[in-house]
Design a protein around this nucleic acid. Structure first.
Length: 372
RNA sequence: GUGGGUGUAGUCAAGCGGUUAAGACACAGGGUUGUGGCUCCUGCACUCGUGGGUUCGAAUCCCAUCACCCACC
């Protein structure tokens, strides 16, 4: 019996969208789901009870960041990540593979793993499949991710092929090194860049390892939208139907709809929380850049159709004032809204699949949202 | 009234005879997608209180004038 299991509840008849459930030791997750990101054991600007209250079923945290600070030994001594950060629902931790790719100036990739310098104090470290599993086992997250290499875009075929094959070998090592299978489940990650045959190869290799879930990595790394949709189109199909499919790093409304339509169950992204801190809100009528002078005397809510705490209690003029004054409350209120917005949107998506009208809901949403 | 000082963008200012007048903040737009981010990018003075003069050339030197500040009567 694995820690994490998936049940398929309903399939949309006019698309590949599906309604499902992921069961974890810390509760079930109704899918498709958007998972807020809390890299350093906190969803920035939010208290856990607020995140819970807005309906988040699972959040992300990060191996690389927690390993460097405060150190996984400390989190373990605290009683595990759930207890440490006071979050009793499910947690998924990313392996750190993406970090050494995105922030390693002095990184070196070998078959053994990746050596890199800490962005905090410059100290030298090595992250490998075994080390990543050790750290994630210490953290105690419900879903742990394989230590992979996320190839950049663009990357030539040869590089991507070598990289994907190494990622597969690393996955085998992750599976071997993962100790706490009773309480934590390992998800594999497909790579392969923008090459169809390589995506297929990667999928076949990782699916053979029979894991509780699979992710599509290496997308949303700067490629044009149409290419991303095209790759996603066939990539999702290469993954088994009886396991959850997780598209990593995707979080704008259109990407979420397109992902769901192609059969994706799980998404995570820093976008809603990051742009909130930088003054942008996602609303049912499109993006609102709150610092714009147009909102100086606008005393209406951010999104009149939203029933989040922010929209029920504050005006755009006030939110603009907070942002321009650099007030902490600005980050809090905007983050609260953006997360609420996406979580609510996913809830509506789930309902539309149940009622077999996903594409209608999508059309409705797009018409109102305008340009992405 | 006398003596001294200062006047450069919305603000604080650099520049002190020689290409299209630093920079910061503010302001105005934009970005952000497995979080090195209360962040990054772009724009924003045909003009240096005003009027004359010297000079090939003036924000920079001279004269006058106005405004403000300080000191002394």
């Amino acid at each position: 019996m694995t820690a994490v299991t998936y049940e398929l509840i309903k399939k949309d008849s006019k698309s590949r969208a599906r309604r499902g459930r992921v069961n974890t030791p810390h509760g079930s997750i109704e899918t498709p789901v958007f998972m807020p990101v809390g890299t350093a054991a906190t969803v920035k600007a939010m208290r856990p009870d607020e995140v819970k209250e807005m309906g988040a079923q699972i959040i992300l945290s990060n191996t690389y960041h927690l390993y460097l600070r405060p150190g996984h030994d400390i989190v373990k001594a605290a009683g595990g990540l759930h207890k440490f950060m006071n979050w009793d629902r499910a947690i998924l931790t990313d392996s750190g593979g993406f970090q050494v790719f995105s922030l390693g100036d002095l990184r070196k990739i070998t078959e053994e793993g990746v050596t890199f310098r800490s962005h905090i104090d410059g100290s030298k470290h090595m992250l490998s499949p075994e080390k990543s599993m050790e750290v994630q086992n210490a953290l105690g997250s419900d879903i742990i991710m394989a230590f992979d290499e996320c190839a950049p875009y663009p990357a030539d075929r040869n590089y991507v092929k070598n990289s994907l094959e190494r990622t597969t070998r690393w996955l085998a090592r992750c599976k071997e090194a993962h100790k706490n299978t009773e309480m934590q489940s390992l998800f594999g990650i497909m790579q392969g860049g923008m090459y169809k045959d390589l995506r297929y190869q990667s999928a076949m290799e990782i699916v053979e390892m029979d894991l509780p879930g699979y992710a599509i990595g290496g997308l949303s790394v700067g490629e044009p939208k149409d290419i991303m949709y095209e790759v996603l189109d066939y990539s999702a199909d290469y993954l088994p139907e009886d396991k959850p499919r997780y598209l990593m790093g995707v979080g704008s409304p259109d990407y979420l709809f397109e992902g769901v339509e192609r059969g994706i169950d799980m998404f995570d992204c820093v976008l809603p929380t990051r742009i909130a801190r930088n003054g942008t809100a996602m609303t049912s009528h499109g993006r609102v850049i709150i610092k714009n002078a147009a909102h100086e005397r606008d005393f209406s809510p951010l999104d009149p159709e939203c029933d989040c705490y922010t929209c029920k209690n504050y005006s755009r003029a006030y939110l603009r004032h907070l942002f321009k004054s650099n007030e902490i409350l600005s980050s809090m209120l905007l983050t609260n809204h953006n997360l609420h917005f996406l979580i609510n949107m996913m809830k509506n998506i789930r309902q539309s699949i149940e009622e077999d009208r996903f594409l209608e809901y999508k059309r409705e949403f797009y018409n109102k949202y305008g340009k992405f």
